[in-house]
Design a binder for these strands. Structure first.
Lengths: 215, 215, 215, 215
DNA sequence: AATGAATGAGGATTCATTCAT
DNA sequence: TATGAATGAATCCTCATTCAT
């Protein structure tokens, strides 16, 4: 069972142990199916202590989401060197993203699967993090357009949609790469770059795909 | 609430009412949080009748997944005219997909969010449907490559990754389009075509994006 | 399943089919664990028909007990030739008893196990049958005492206890013979005759076992 | 009703209270008819506490059986002085048996009626205890045969049958003595000794009852 | 003579949460 | 800092029983 039992430890340490146990349990069982009993057990403490430090199941789940969201955005940001060309920045960001999700499958499950499937307190929490990533990608697209000497006036709504699609594709690929054995973070990133950047590049050259007129 | 109460109806009809209620409840609350009580209420019948016809919560959820998965794949298939160029087929498929998910948000939530979040009986059920879509897309990519007079030997693994990315992006965009007001199915489809097809087109012209050598 | 379905049949026949199914189900599952659904199914009819003919679960169980009790006492009575010496009558009665219980294990289970474990409506029903057997045995003992030229004044209470013991032993041996493979009705009867009659005979010779004085 | 409510008590004490309540309820109502609600009420605790300590209805019933079986065999063993003649040992054992069953009617009902009536987890549990008693009696019979200077080769199968009959008769008489008012443990024991020992004694003298030749 | 449709009531089990120490 | 003892409130599921035809 989790940590060594009954040892007195400073609050900060205990809290992290609890969050570790909670992320693992929530990630594997889901919010409702995870029981405070199991979490406390896995953390090696009694239930009242969990309540003393984290207040309630809801608060505990929220704390998990926040911690994991921050860890993910931090990882992405830390993986990107500023000042290099936009496509390289995206490449680095994607690699960091896929690496982090592969190394923290439970945390990723909490963010991608569990937090979104349960009502309003939680979905908003994830949305905030997601927005950060979307903004990051959006800026890269805008910068890339500028670097390509293109008229920078790609309609904003269009850019938003593209960024959304890219982030969405990344999220799906992360789940896919975690599930399919033998897909490395690098491979996942390369696949997505091929898929996305070539398309985006194409568009920026002024050759978007266009729907048939009668539609 | 829900249907008219207490009227005797043939089993087949009642079953559909129950599935309607179940899809709505599961879609909005999630598998665990949805209660059989609420579902029976919404269907306008007593709980025992739900159990008589659908056996258990698990079976009921599975029946929901199957019905919605079939409805979705049927809609996509019905929306695509065979024989036309591959890019047009994809365009039509995406429009059908986004139209259907927009019209059946609860069904889509069941498939995309809820079914994947809960243990093995269910995830497999959705995976089967997803695989159908991935195969459909994969074939389009292969055909398109041939139509573009390209060496048809895009590595298989690469194609699988691209198809996965496209389906994943579509799934994410469906959720996005449902959430953001004023995004029509057509717009979502166009965004994704731009994102994906241009990129794929580019690749097929022999200009894939390539990672920097030192990576 | 059970009988052929949906065939119109006269009430008396249907009732017997239902009782057959009920005895089997009650005997194997117990009163509470047996469900009207299972019984109706096994009888090859719909539940409302069972209620139409037998009124309620309680009444159905009571009808089972009565039918099986009568069948058992009838079998014992039919197996005994009157007029022969008392020990022979007991021998024949026991053989008939063990034969019948071996051939109708479910009926015997209903009488011996199930009916006695559930509240007052049923226990009384079995008690009546049991009393008949006890009386039968009591008379045999009295007659035997007379045949042995003994002072016929064996205290009544004593005789009652002995009869009770004999019937109880028979009941236990019936269960034992049913469970242990290879014990025939005849063997069971012989064991009990040895056990009981020799003891009784001994007593009638005026040599009862007597407790130590200080007790 | 039952114990004083809401007082904090050590687990071991509470468990015994729960078992007390359970034995009483199971003994009077039967396994299926007894509700966990009633048991918890009678024990003066909430249902969850019963589940916390005893796990499930099945486990609770098993715990009852084990406790009562041990109590009964302990009582019988404690009541018998070793080293005295076999008939006296049997006498003492029977007195202890009837005394204990008279003092613990619910426990006896659980063992004799309820546990045997319900499926396999439980029947086996009682059988183990019963086997102990049968072995105890079997040994007494063998020793008695030796004490009577008889050829010790009473066929084993025969002895088993006799022991079974004796134990069965004892079980039945226990129920009878409990039901009939004014039958003391001593009287029940004496009746059975008369019934059994005289018979056995007779046999050991070489005068078994023999079936008529034509049978 | 017979059944498909339907339900009120209750029972086992689990869970988040608190109290007293 | 830490926990053993305890519960109110659901939740899934089953069953005997009835109604309308």
């Amino acid at each position: 069972m989790g940590a060594v039992k009954n040892k007195r430890m400073p609050r900060a340490v205990r809290e992290q142990q609890m969050l570790d146990a909670a992320v693992r349990t929530f990630g594997q069982r889901g919010y409702r199916a995870a029981s405070m009993d199991e979490i406390a057990d896995l953390a090696g403490v009694s239930k009242p202590l969990v309540y003393l430090y984290l207040n309630s199941k809801e608060d505990l789940f929220t704390a998990c989401i926040r911690r994991e969201a921050k860890a993910l955005t931090d990882a992405v940001r830390a993986g990107v060197r500023p000042g290099i060309p936009a496509d390289r920045q995206l490449w680095e960001g994607l690699r960091a993203f896929f690496t982090h999700t592969a190394e923290n499958p439970d945390g990723w499950a909490v963010l991608h699967l569990q937090a979104r499937t349960h009502g309003e307190p939680f979905a908003a929490e994830v949305l905030a993090m997601r927005e950060e990533l979307v903004v990051f990608v959006t800026q890269l697209i805008v910068v890339a357009a500028r670097e390509a000497h293109r008229d920078p006036s790609l309609p904003e709504r269009e850019v938003a949609g593209l960024a959304e699609a890219l982030v969405g594709a990344a999220e799906s690929l992360a789940a896919w790469a975690n599930a399919a054995p033998g897909i490395s973070a690098k491979q996942a990133a390369a696949t997505l770059m091929n898929f996305a950047w070539s398309g985006l590049g194409n568009m920026m050259e002024g050759r978007p795909w266009s729907p048939p007129p009668q539609d």
